[in-house]
């Protein structure tokens, strides 16, 4: 005879039954791997080693003192600092223009939306090749045009001081479409009566209308766009791998590309794990700052 189980127990078991599978899968696929990476970052483990030695913070010290490691970190920060604000600003500009254009030319507005969104949908590696052609130092269309106009023709991918900005430019081109769609969605839900109220209140120029209604009402959207774009910025990899391979002389090396090279080319798992943890901390910190500090200021409670 089974002993009757109490109601609390029964409900507890039901909860476990419902949540358990998800927790197990999450643990196996996310939490445990993260933990392993975290632990490995304190070792000198290389793929194939029969034993591991704990080296404490040595890998982190190496990453932050080694000129190549520091190069990767600063490059990533430059990339994010250039790409994120430009992408957000340009996407906002494009979205507001296209939103207005939908009033007098819906067809053209739709066509341009699709055009701006194309880079998001396209295969980045193929697109990167197109960029390589266009930015070719001597026979690329960009430099040929510049030369014809009597301007200097920069070596977009081989100039060490320039290459990371070139990649940031491609990053902007690549993310504008996605951000534009998010902003368009944000613009579409701004209640029309707020613009009416602003007009009645004497907010007459497009400029003050933007600052009185549009910008404040886009606050939550902008925060979301900033978080998404910053995360994408820190993750930059495809363009580096397809166009420069981190070169010339590590001038376009980034955190994720370095992590790939150290981990999957040199099999220095410990070092790659340390890079991963640093990358993770950057993204987590940024997201925390953005959500923790700005959340309250964009939802107006």
């Amino acid at each position: 005879m089974m002993a009757p189980i109490s109601r609390a127990w029964r409900e507890g078991l039901t909860d476990l039954y419902l949540v358990g599978p998800t927790v197990l899968v999450l643990a196996a696929l996310v939490f445990v791997p993260v933990l392993i990476v975290f632990v490995l970052s304190f070792t000198d483990y290389q793929l194939g080693d029969r034993s591991v030695t704990f080296v404490g913070f040595d890998q982190y010290v190496a990453l932050f003192t080694d000129p190549i490691g520091r190069r990767a970190i600063t490059n990533t920060l430059i990339y994010v600092a250039v790409m994120v604000p430009s992408s957000i600003l340009l996407a906002l500009l494009v979205a507001t223009r296209l939103h207005g254009m939908a009033q007098w030319s819906p067809g053209l507005s739709r066509f341009l939306r699709a055009a701006y969104f194309l880079p998001v949908a396209a295969t980045l590696v193929a697109m990167a090749l197109a960029w390589q052609m266009m930015l070719h130092p001597s026979i690329g269309i960009v430099n040929m045009t510049l030369v014809r106009l009597g301007l200097p023709a920069p070596a977009w991918f081989s100039d060490r001081g320039l290459v990371i900005y070139t990649l940031a430019l491609i990053g902007i081109w690549q993310t504008i479409g996605y951000n534009m769609v998010l902003f368009l969605a944000g613009l579409a839900v701004i209640p029309r009566h707020l613009y009416d109220a602003a007009e009645v209140d004497g907010v007459s120029s497009a400029w003050s209308r933007f600052w009185t209604v549009t910008w404040p009402m886009l606050g939550p959207t902008t925060l979301f766009v900033a978080v998404i774009t910053a995360t994408a910025g820190f993750r930059v990899f495809e363009t580096v791998a397809a166009l420069t391979g981190g070169g010339p002389a590590f001038a376009s090396d980034t955190l994720v590309y370095a992590l790939y090279r150290e981990g999957f080319v040199y099999f220095k798992v410990g070092y790659a794990s340390a890079i991963t943890v640093v990358f993770f901390v950057f993204v987590a910190l940024l997201t925390f700052i953005q959500y923790g500090l700005l959340q309250k200021r964009v939802h107006y409670r």
């Binding site: 209640p191 109220a197 602003a198």
Partner: peptide, 20 residues
């Protein structure tokens, strides 16, 4: 003339207050 030039005031069904 714009609403401001006409010096009219309007109360909207949804109040239309600026949330920020």
């Amino acid at each position: 003339d714009t609403p401001a030039m006409r010096n009219i005031a309007m109360v909207f069904q949804s109040y239309a207050l600026y949330p920020h």
